[in-house]
Nucleic acid binder design. Structure first.
Lengths: 147, 147
DNA sequence: TCATTTATTGGACTTTGTCCAGTAAAATTT
DNA sequence: AAATTTTACTGGACAAAGTCCAATAAATGA
């Protein structure tokens, strides 16, 4: 059971860490595309056979809003919609060539973001940071049996 | 130097962790106040002698936007503005009684949020999680000499 | 078949956030 | 000290982000 002091420290981590990532995100997503547009593009690019509804579900976004963003991406010829064989209501979203290029750019920028986060930190400490975060990840999200 | 694989894992942590906190925040800040209003209130309540500009700076918010939020909080009698002795341009922001009460409620909810995050995790693992996050905090933010 | 659910979209709207300009009070320069 | 520049705050106008509801069409279930 976490003590109040420990909870406060975790809250402090959450505040500073999300602030920090927020600041870095501002630099990363200055491609002329909004944060959400970038997220949708990344989501589409990271999957095959993805439908609008799945994008909305995965990103916890409103269906209508998602639809609008996808519409814009299609208009900009970054994404194309294809018919689904399985479900005529549904669409399959695919990145175009230039969509792929933007995807790669954003992906690159995201890598740079992490590098920037740890610049000024010694390699040893970077390694320690990596271990801490992946340990946290395992505990929080690889909860096969929660023990 | 972090490998590409390590960078990817850190990015995965960032994604899942911020998503998770985002979900929990939705539950926490359902006091009828927006996320930003709550942040401003928390910021004011956590300091004495705080000015609007300092709030904006601390929360990395637009001055005008901050001003508007404070105005609303004042209107709702959660915050009062007082004259600064040192600088007649500046104001000092103080929580009212009910502002304090709301502060306490949000603070409570934030604690619950952390508890909810770690519910289903054994005490031993919770302790390990705590250590991981505070280690990360130290490396990232307590960088007296960055080594 | 008929009723219900699901996927997607558009329209109208609210909330959030940005930009610019104005006022008044420092702070700085000359 | 007077003039200039900067700083703190605020309002108005606007843009971006997000929500809500309704409509359409296809799939699913009774």
């Amino acid at each position: 059971m976490l003590s109040q002091k420990e909870i406060n420290e975790i809250r402090a981590f959450n505040r500073k860490y999300t602030d920090q990532l927020g600041l870095l995100n501002k630099q990363v997503f200055n491609t002329g595309f909004s944060f959400q547009e970038s997220r949708v593009l990344l989501e589409i690019g990271s999957h095959t056979e993805l439908s609008p509804m799945e994008v909305a579900k995965n990103l916890d976004m409103d269906a209508s809003y998602t639809s609008r963003i996808i519409k814009k991406l299609v208009k900009l010829k970054l994404v194309t919609k294809h018919e689904s064989k399985k479900d005529a209501r549904s669409k399959i979203l695919i990145l175009t060539k230039s969509g792929q290029e933007l995807f790669n750019k954003i992906d690159d920028d995201s890598n740079k973001q992490i590098k920037q986060l740890v610049t000024n930190i010694s390699p040893q400490k970077q390694e320690e940071l990596y271990k801490s975060l992946t340990t946290a990840y395992d505990i929080l999200f690889n909860n096969e049996s929660e023990n």
